[in-house]
Design a protein around this nucleic acid. Structure first.
Lengths: 336, 336
DNA sequence: TTGAAAGCGCTAACAG
DNA sequence: CTGTTAGCGCTTTCAA
């Protein structure tokens, strides 16, 4: 049986409110007398092993300090760089006494009970939300911030400047002399704003360059198609901007098979700096972003959104800049 | 302002307890009269948009329906097959009205507040727990089940029969005629019971076979070492049992570089059937297990452990059998 | 600053 | 089966 403020109060000869206030840090301790009491109470609480009961506090204060991680399992959340974001998000939330709760959106109505039942104070998501979910959140006054998703302009969000990343990456290829380019997105990739943003950045850099340049794109297509484009024909691409490390891995494998050298014959550039990337041969040139920072910013935004002095109605967008990490998979364009 | 049982009660002309009981499904509705009231109450509740307040219920019942996912970020939890286990665990818990909460063990004392503050009713973990954590759990009467970890015999656990998996895999190599074998674990792998179990299975199959067989092992070593063993010397292994898909990926890459054919010159066998495995060339022969099932069993065990009729003191162990999936990366041993 | 008292919304005996 | 009556443990006025 856990010890309560009442037991501490009795032992210390003060009222329960006093104990509660002291344990909560509400007491200013400017006067000598209160400082003394405070210390005594703290000592006794410690001796007795007192801990604030979070259930009671939740009811009384009307908040749980829980943040929901909204996701549907059809879009696999725990892959790639998201896991790093989540990890840092959890850490940052914990710093402020908040915890993250898995809230799978599919299946039964569990998610609705959690949202409407006051199980969480706020939420984060990596994906567009269904209307039902959005309204449940709104009606329950649960704030949301979107991470790496810009589909709902009314939400606060933290984004990566994919346009800039793709632009820089493409410029890199151009500087190396590549004039036959390809932007490739694998068929397994889900529709997402970054697909489009990276395409825009790629396109912008290409059209800026002007004449004598061929910039192809293969979006949502199986790798066989990309591979055959890369290994046959005279105007085959020599510089490939991959949507992520998935495409990069696939293509590198395939190129080895066909005896195409990287970066001798083809330069390959990916997005997202992952573990597996470091174990590639050659190491992948890639556009990386600071996943840790997204988590931190996300935590910051959501806590601000649900905070007491929340100027709710305004949504804020934080954008982080990716950076190009040049490694071994890109090199000068081959002579033709 | 959310609607409470009192408002529903007033509108329906019954007492709040009646509403609560009906909403909770406590009412047996055998008699006509009560069935009628029940329906009316339910209708009104729906009209008013009533939802049980989980905070109030938590305080009153003394449970939160939260299950903690205990992990420390130094052992990266969200990689590989664990993510599938977690996904199914979350789903299974949701079926029973439970939710999973991230509980990072490092950093500040947040985890202790969660455990001792009654934020969760039970917990699951994939790793050995520190003494401080274990005692916090025990003292707070929070049950735990270990997933794929056998380090604490006093816990309920769900395990994979890694011994059997490695045994079957090794037998597969032997049947293909391989007589120079290697069991390889990469340096980045953390100490874990499966490392040892797989080694045992490998060793058992090897020693069963008897004479004319050389079974090497390289445990926790960098890939360069493994690669050099595979490409030089007369007695170099032709059949490799990798600890996971990581080693398999690394070795396949390296073999391509050295012009060593798979499975022509070397057969490679991995553990864990992952997405990336399917995109390998050739597709990886691997020992797979039903991750979904682990999650389901885990949910079952933890709910049983914390349940009301929990015969607490006894810990139960469920073991699931892996199965060998033969694909393209293994073939007959080459002539020498 | 401190204490007394009234909740937060639901659950859980206990009568009726 | 239904209503009444106390709480669960903490927070929060409101006086003192």
């Amino acid at each position: 049986m856990p010890v309560t403020i009442y037991e501490v109060a009795e032992r210390a000869g003060v009222s329960s409110s006093t104990v509660a206030r002291i344990m909560r840090g509400d007491v200013k301790e400017v006067q000598e007398r209160s400082a003394e009491t405070a210390n005594r109470v703290r000592r006794i609480a410690k001796e007795l092993g007192y801990r604030t009961n979070r259930r009671a506090r939740a009811l009384s204060r009307g908040v749980t300090h829980g943040i929901g991680l909204l996701y549907s399992s059809d879009r696999w959340l725990f892959e790639g760089v998201n896991t790093q974001v989540i990890n840092s998000l959890v850490g940052a939330l914990q710093e402020d006494g908040y915890h993250l709760v898995f809230v799978p959106l599919g299946g039964n109505d569990g998610w609705e009970d959690i949202i409407r039942g006051g199980q969480i104070d706020g939420a984060v998501t990596f994906q567009p939300l269904h209307e039902r979910v959005s309204s449940a959140l709104a009606e329950s006054n649960v704030g949301v911030v979107a991470l790496a998703d810009d589909s709902d302009a009314s939400l606060s969000q933290v984004l990566v400047d994919d346009y800039a990343g793709a632009y820089a990456a493409t410029r890199h290829l151009l500087k190396l002399g590549h004039r036959q380019l390809l932007y490739y997105v694998h068929e397994s990739v889900k529709q997402h704003c970054s697909v489009h943003e990276r395409r825009r950045g790629y396109g912008a850099a290409a059209s800026e360059h002007g004449q004598g340049l061929e910039a192809k794109e293969l979006i949502f297509v199986p790798e066989e198609e990309a591979v055959s484009l890369l290994v046959s024909g005279d105007s085959r691409p020599t510089g490939v901007l991959c949507y992520s490390n998935l495409e990069a891995t696939l293509l590198c494998h395939a190129m080895w098979q066909y005896g195409v050298g990287i970066p001798r014959d083809i330069s390959i550039l990916g997005f997202n700096d992952m573990f597996s990337t470091k174990y590639m041969t050659p190491p992948l040139t890639t556009v990386a972003f600071d996943a840790e920072r997204i988590g931190k910013l996300g935590a910051e935004l959501i806590l601000k959104t649900i905070g007491p002095k929340a100027t709710s109605c305004e949504s804020v967008v934080r954008t982080i800049k990716p950076k190009l990490i040049v490694r071994g998979s890109t090199g000068p364009a081959p002579d033709r």
